[in-house]
Structures are given as C-alpha cells and as structure tokens.
Design a binder for these strands. Structure first.
Lengths: 244, 244
DNA sequence: GGCGGTAGTTTTGTCGATAAAAACTCTCCC
DNA sequence: GGGAGAGTTTTTATCGACAAAACTACCGCC
C-alpha cells in the first residue's frame, strides 16, 4: 500500500521475515481499509492483542504508525480509534487531490521525458487490459486492477520530478481507496472509467496540459460524487456513546 | 511544531501532563531539528533511553511517530537513524513546495473570503513587527519570529479550503525549517525577507494570483539557493563506516 | 597476505507485569 | 426522580527482562 514510502521500501523488499509490528500494521491497515473496524470505532489494545496474536508493544507501534498515516486517530491517555470517514472528509480529500494532482500533472507534462511518456503508456495499457471486477457478473474488487490503477495514476504524476510531492499523492490515493472500499459496489458498471483513463492518458502524452488537468479533475470529482451518493449511511458512524 | 496535525491538537491543548512518549517525541524532534543528532546518525535505543530518561517503549513509540513524519528513518531489525538532509533532498523539497504551495495560494486567492484576507493581513503584521534575530548584533534564532513566520505562510494558503492540503503544507514547512536550522546563521542580514513577505502579502490580498505565486516561488527558491550555498559540507554526512 | 567462517558482543524486537488514568456503576442524598 | 460522588472495573502507558537478529573481531585456512 505505502510502497512509495521511502522508509519501508527497501526493508520490505529484502526482508523475508518482516517484524511482527510491521505484519500487524499491514494487516490492520487492510482491515481498516476494508471496513472490518468501522470508522470512529475504538481500537482497544487488548482486543487487538487477541485478534492479531501479538503483545502490546507491536500493536501499539502499528497503531502509532497508522496514526501518523492518518488512518487511525490517537488521543493521549484515551486510546486509539479508527479515523472518521464522513462526507466532509471525502469532500476535503477530493478538493486536495484536485489541487495537488493537477499541479503535479501540469509539471509532469511540462517536464516529463521520453521514459515518463513510455511509463504512462505502458501503465495505462496494463490497466486497460485488466478487468475491474474479479467477477464478471457482479462487482468484486480485483486486487490486480487496484494495483494497476494506482500505478497508472502515479505514473501520470511521476514526471514532475519531486519525490516528496509524489509520496503525498500516493498517500492521498490510499486515503481515497479507503472511501472506495467503505462504499463497496460503487458505480459499476454504470460508469466507463476505462474511457476516462484513456482520455487522460492520451491528453497527457499529447502534452495537452489544460485538457489533461480538466479530465483528471473531472475524473476525481465524479468519483467523489458517486461515493458520497452511494454511502450516505456512513456519514457519522462515530456516536460511540457520549458521556450522558 | 506539528500543531496542525489533527491527532495531536486537541490532546495537547487540554492535557496538562502529556504522555511520556509525547514528551520524548517533542524533545527528540527539537533535537533533530536543531542538529543535536546529526543527519544520517544512528539513534540507538539505549543511548536515547539514557538521554531522555525513559524506558524503551516510549522511546520506540516516539521514534515511530517521527519516522512516519519523515524526520527519522527506520530500517526493520536494524534500528533507527536520523533522516538524511542532503542537497538533493533540499532541491526536492523546494520543488515540491513551489508546486504545491503555488497551487494552494492560487486557490486561496480565488476562494478566500474576508476572514482569510484579514488573517493574512494580521499574521503578516505580527511577522513584520517581530525581529528575525533574538540578538540585534548577530543571528540568533528567534522562536517568536519562527512562529509568526509559520503562521503567516499558512495563513496565505488557508483560504484554499482543503484541510488535508494545508496539513501537508505545514509538514513541508517543518521539513524546510530543519534545513534552516542545520545551516545556521544563514543569509542574515544580506537578504531582506521582510520585503519579500510584504510583497507576497500585498499581492495575495490584492488578488493578483500570478504575481503572488511568482513572488512566493521566488521566495522559496531564493531560500533554497542560500541554504545549499551556505551548507555544502552537510551534503553526505551519512558515511557511518562502510563495511570495509 | 588476503579471505571466509565463527564465536562473542551489541542492539533490536517482543513479552508479561504493574502503576496510573479514565470509564463505568452503583448508591446515597436532595 | 435526578444528580453528585465514591468505589470498582476496564484500559492505557510504562517498565524491566528476554530471545532473536545483526554487527564485530578474531582466528584459521588457502
């Protein structure tokens, strides 16, 4: 997931036996992304200790990392809870992505070399030939498609030549992924995302900055629209018993 | 420092007795920013345990958080070390800031309301009336100036209406601050940063998007130029005894 | 003389226990 | 009947100890 994070990339690649804390963190992240722990829900150390079969230290460490990543919320002396995922946050996320990623895309288009162009092309090709759903009949998330989708969007921006910016974009994409997971079964197959990706790819390679940015922005805003329409029930799932 | 981080803000504001891990983290961050631990240097748990008077758990937790923040580098099973701060990273940081913050500034100028305008004005005023150096004779970092400086730059972008973006900008500013600390005594008083801030402020309030962005970008690039010129010796301080 | 393997030392990652803090509950009083 | 308060229970934050892994230094061998 956070494969672009400079800290983890080399260690994860070499080490065959990741540290326990890392295993817990990755499993926990998957569980949160997939909604096993509901947004706003408490994450008690003891429960997690039991569920993931580890001592308190690795659990706590995993939670700390996820907290810094924004997926988990920590309150000193009052434990951890799953980060909220309400429609206000979704709006904010979309807004941020539109602002940041169009800037990055513009820079990519202006500065990207031949290698960038080729990478955009090939990553789009891989995405295009992968079915979005693992099941042709109904929607079932296809991990391969998710990976290619992520790679394509990052490849688009990779020409900008700013690693810190790219890492942030990768992070934003992860956050967006969470919303997609939470409201499963979204906009499929009503919407032809393949065509949208194709148009973005062509505009980018054709160095049509304005058009590419407009398409990308529309792409994100449309996704946001579908998501907030599809999952209004998740808006304020926190509750969790106020003091009274 | 990371006062904009949603996780810490409320806890830190209320809790009079912060958790030990938090204390260690904040002190450690300050020490790293100020160069007490050199970039690339190892951070052994035992040494830190001794230095900060805490057990291994809080130390490890503080390191985890700083690692996620980018100030500390973690390698599984091989401990922690201070993140590098070479000129390539500085370049990358500047590039990222220029791309992201001009986008944010543009959005701020387009969307910012009266409250935003006033906040920019007042934060600039506070900055302008605070001396940059705590000592009139030579350069000595003035914490008050630093705080106002940070507030001014964030106020500029605060009109964009995207909290996630703003949080990222705050993070970028912290990273930049580190470079400033590392190469102490920089460009003072050769450079009139006050005038630069004033010009940016006026262009922003006057809704001159293009000019404000150009000024902001020049502001950052100039800083980068000074920093990399002032601290060439820090370029590759890692070394740390290769295998031979 | 250089290199590979091996024993010893350091350092990390993990565990279980413990003290402190928060949350909850139940009772008593108005 | 409602609310405040004391006691109990849950939960967190921290510590010290231990096992596993990495690093170091040494020794023998080619």
């Amino acid at each position: 997931m956070a494969a672009l994070d400079g800290n983890s990339v080399e260690a994860a690649a070499i080490d065959p036996i990741p540290t326990l804390a890392r295993q817990v963190m990755e499993q926990l992240r998957r569980d949160i992304l997939e909604g096993a722990h509901p947004p706003g829900g408490r994450l008690r150390i003891e429960s997690l200790r039991e569920r993931y079969g580890a001592g308190a230290s690795p659990i706590r460490e995993a939670l700390s990392q996820l907290a810094a990543e924004g997926l988990v919320l920590r309150v000193d002396q009052r434990g951890f809870r799953v980060a909220l995922a309400d429609s206000a946050m979704l709006r904010d996320l979309i807004e941020t992505r539109c602002l940041v990623e169009t800037a990055a895309l513009r820079a990519s288009i202006a500065r990207g070399d031949a290698a960038w162009e080729e990478q955009v092309l090939v990553s789009h090709h891989r995405l295009a030939r992968t079915p979005r759903s693992a099941d042709p009949g109904r929607f079932l998330p296809n991990p391969e498609w998710e990976a290619h989708h992520r790679a394509f969007h990052l490849a688009l921006l990779d020409g900008c030549g700013a690693r810190a910016l790219l890492a942030f974009c990768a992070d934003l994409q992860d956050r967006a992924l969470r919303f997609r997971y939470l409201s499963n079964q979204v906009a499929w197959p009503q919407r032809d995302v393949g065509a949208e990706h194709k148009a973005i790819c062509e505009a980018a390679i054709g160095r049509q900055a304005d058009e590419a940015c407009a398409l990308l922005e529309a792409h994100y805003r449309r996704t946001g629209h579908f998501l907030s329409a599809a999952a209004p029930r998740e808006d304020l799932p926190t509750g969790q018993g106020p003091s009274t």
